[in-house]
Design a protein around this nucleic acid. Structure first.
Lengths: 263, 263
DNA sequence: ACTATCAGTTTGTCTGATAAAGCTGTGCGA
DNA sequence: TCGCACAGCTTTATCAGACAAACTGATAGT
């Protein structure tokens, strides 16, 4: 089942794009986020795109439709197809997210994503603690037990342990979010999570090493605080503990990215 | 500029869809959310859609592409075009949101949206209080002053006052969110806000009356508590006050919807 | 200065033909 | 009997070309 590597090549949740059209969509999407055309500016005419990309007009048109559906383009007869202002883009769409991540400005995106998590997850912890059903409480206990077990198992190979640490960590957060029972929240989190995963992965590759597990102990203790408060039905306590946890992740990420280029 | 009515006919942020294609996209989108085809089931073949909708094959294909870009459909040669599971739909996309709202299950959607607000906005208040720049603090003060002025001005015609009350209320929340300086958060909120607006509007129409201003005093006092804590840089206080505020809105909405059909 | 009109540009829509992908049943061989 | 290669069928994918419609900007007439 598992691929044997924890390297993610693509952000999950994306639309499957096969064939010629898939290539055209990705190319166009990448060209747009790259800033090849300014916001509000017209892109190449259909006829020109046909030549540039060596595909038929129908493929060009369908690709443009897809990008338009994501808020990135807008066509009008005789005026051409224009790049929409970024504020109109579906920034939370996995495809848009991936193009942006690959196009650069990873630091800004990372900050934005982590900030979003910092804003949302404490509230999630609060609401989950108050509203969890018995089933949800049981699921949380399982997730915590699994996380704890992996943490304690020092016999595991370093790499496998690291992978399982991340997996059980994600599952812990997912279980908490699941307790709130909101489709919108589930989806929101899955996009944030996938984007962070890709971002962090690219980051690690760029630095040419697999991050070690420094800070694991603190992280584990902080998760325990969240879990304990959750079980004790202490919503405010869970909220505070979660805030500390995310804040620490942000500090770590900041340190990690500090070595990088921009800013 | 203003239309003279505060009735919203369409959710803001939607892709502009003109012409024949626009009609086809909306029809197909509506048919999908209506459950005409089960999740995972194949929809009509291209050739059949051409007949059903009386449009050309290119229009059908472009419409399908747009819906696919929103995660609602997926096409494969020889297997047909299938409705994707709801979890794959871009639920936060304004178009998808509008189709869902119009298709029914308004109560479930309203609950989900309000729950999302309840989870997010206290965290927003917390982060905004900590991170606001001087400019953001000034903007908040303006927003609060405007809200206060409208509230105090009992000379305004009832209808106008109500409208301005809602406007200044929204602006208050927008100013707070702006203080966090996150594009993703801005966009997330704008979708939630637009959806709630449409939902509440349809609700009021359904009940055939314009909601009066009962509860305005309490609402105003709660906003004041948020503002005061924000100004005093009391992040936890702002968070708590915001939570009370949203919770009350939820209770009100629940009362309002209680008269309705389902559940 | 203003308006109606016309020519030109670009996307929108329709049609038909062919390619490619994927499913399904058939029959051959072990 | 089981499994597998293959052929035929279904459906979407891609290409090509023609004409329609929407909009722009220039121009001519008042």
């Amino acid at each position: 089942m598992r691929t044997g590597t924890n390297i993610k090549s693509e952000l999950s949740g994306r639309i499957e794009v096969r064939g010629i059209l898939g290539g055209a969509v990705n190319e166009l999407g990448a060209r747009i986020v790259s800033g090849e055309w300014p916001e509000g500016g017209v892109i190449s005419r259909e006829a020109d795109l046909v030549e540039e990309m060596k595909v038929s007009r129908s493929v060009v048109r369908e690709a443009v439709r897809i990008l338009s559906a994501k808020g990135m383009l807008r066509s009008r007869t005789s005026d051409g197809t224009r790049v929409q202002p970024r504020a109109a883009w579906r920034l939370l769409d996995p495809d848009v997210m991936e193009w942006r991540i690959r196009a650069g400005d990873r630091k800004g995106l990372l900050q934005d994503l982590l900030r979003l998590r910092l804003v949302i997850e404490p509230g999630v912890a609060y609401a989950a603690t108050l509203e969890a059903t018995e089933a949800a409480r049981a699921r949380m206990s399982e997730a915590w037990a699994a996380k704890r077990e992996v943490f304690a198992d020092s016999d595991l190979p370093r790499d496998l342990r690291r992978r399982r640490f991340i997996e059980t960590d994600l599952d812990f957060h997912r279980a908490l979010i699941g307790a709130v029972r909101s489709q919108l929240l589930d989806q929101l989190f899955s996009v944030i999570e996938a984007a962070l995963e890709l971002l962090i992965d690219l980051q690690m590759r760029a630095r040419g090493y697999t991050s070690d597990m420094i800070g694991m102990d603190e992280s584990q203790a902080m998760h325990e605080a969240v879990f304990d408060a959750f079980i004790a039905r202490d919503a405010e306590g869970a909220e505070r503990a979660m805030r500390r946890l995310i804040q620490r992740a942000i500090d770590d990420a900041h340190d990690g990215f500090a070595l990088l280029r921009e800013d």
